[in-house]
Design a protein around this nucleic acid. Structure first.
Lengths: 239, 239
DNA sequence: GAGTGGTCTAGACCACGTA
DNA sequence: ACGTGGTCTAGACCACTCC
């Protein structure tokens, strides 16, 4: 049983993505939408607020809510999605190869963050190579805490880690902190991604947490710089 | 006259940043906060929702709201802030030099986006070089639409463009779309940023819009790759 | 059972833009 | 004057956690 707000959200989303409401158009007013969906105005406002944050609409005081973007135009690269999920949405010819999977301790470079709580914690280490059109473009390394998720089957690792966490382990991913930097390619980067010695890679390091705020994994993602693209939508904080 | 929600937001924010509520702690319950601040629970919930989106707290059903981050720990690189504002927050020794300022038409490379509406639109072109500790690290180029902001004084350009827009022109910045890529350094990049011919730069291209959804400027920002760092917080969409 | 957050409501008052 | 979004309220019912 879906609750009302998510259903309305999904409905408006699909109407925006399918040009029922086109960019530049105004949505029906909040009162009108409340009537149409048979809910209170506050419920409509909750949904419109989410669409505003996502960058799909802009509210104009005294005028209405204008459509300013769609999901399909610029795929949500800044959202928290797994590689498998993004690929699926983008309709790309992708492939994943599991290079390594073994028990390990968290390496203590721990991504310069002060996550000292996790030093030497037992993890399942995964190293996967991502292909786009038969060409290797990303090296993904995951360090999954055994205290939260005791094991990761090799078969699942080749598909989607997130899917495994959420469906098979009943663990709900909630949020992640990530950092993007550019670094010179290591010998291993050069070999796996077919790079030259002077090339650089885009490195994304992050921590992923669950709805109960427990950390489930650390990860490092190394991208061919020429294939890297990050799209962001940001709203200004009003002070 | 500040309204209630923003005041409570600011208060909780400062208490989190000043360790009154430390990471791992639970905030007072929603009912408790409603009593403390003398407002309704929905007002409290609005504020807590904002803090959740910002990555400062995580709500645990049946338990409470746990602090999971602060602003000072990882400064908000993914927020929509001007260079001047970020520098100020981060307490960096920075400097800006205006290299060029002239009337122009929007170049038609228009950032591959389909903003065909703006072809050949008259703009004020600005090129600024940003220094960090006496070293040049960023080349900023702005194309400010004359139809929205007729002119940009040279003096203001050396300070903060956003400050000029908002305080002197009474234009309210609302949101921006940006794209991050990595490209090989041009001759000009090499000269201005002291790079070698094989080096790369991180390029951020974007469009900035106002609260009334009008575009005010396009921009391109070219960063020394070794100085570039982008921090992001993302929440998982619940489907 | 008591307390927590999640959802939704019906209504109020305001500031803003259009006409 | 009217309709729009912005803000806030007081209260209801639910699902969840903890004791």
């Amino acid at each position: 049983m879906q609750s009302k707000a998510p259903m309305i959200h999904a409905d408006l989303l699909s109407k925006i993505n399918n040009d029922v409401y086109q960019i530049g158009d105004f949505l029906p007013s909040e009162n009108r939408l409340a009537q149409l969906y048979g809910v209170s105005r506050e419920t409509i406002r909750k949904v419109l607020n989410e669409l505003t944050i996502s960058g799909l609409i802009q509210k104009l005081k005294g005028k209405g809510s204008m459509v300013i973007g769609t999901q399909r135009s610029d795929l949500p690269a800044s959202k928290l999605m797994s590689y498998a999920e993004i690929s699926q949405k983008a309709d790309l010819a992708v492939q994943t190869r599991l290079l390594e999977r073994r028990d390990a301790a968290l390496p203590d470079f721990v991504f310069d963050s002060l996550n000292t709580d996790f030093r030497q914690a037992p993890v399942t280490y995964l190293c996967r190579l991502r292909y786009l059109d038969e060409r290797p473009v990303i090296i993904d390394r995951n360090y999954v805490l055994k205290s939260v998720c005791p094991d990761v089957p090799a078969g699942e690792a080749e598909k989607s880690l997130f899917h495994y966490f959420e469906h098979d382990c009943h663990l709900q991913i909630a949020y992640a902190k990530r950092q993007i930097t550019v670094e010179t390619a290591t010998k291993e980067d050069q070999q796996l991604l077919n790079l030259h010695s002077q090339d650089v890679v885009v490195v994304i390091r992050g921590v992923t947490s669950l709805t109960d705020a427990r950390v489930i994994e650390f990860n490092e993602s190394r991208h061919r710089a020429d294939q890297f693209r990050f799209v962001d939508f940001a709203r200004r904080e009003r002070n």
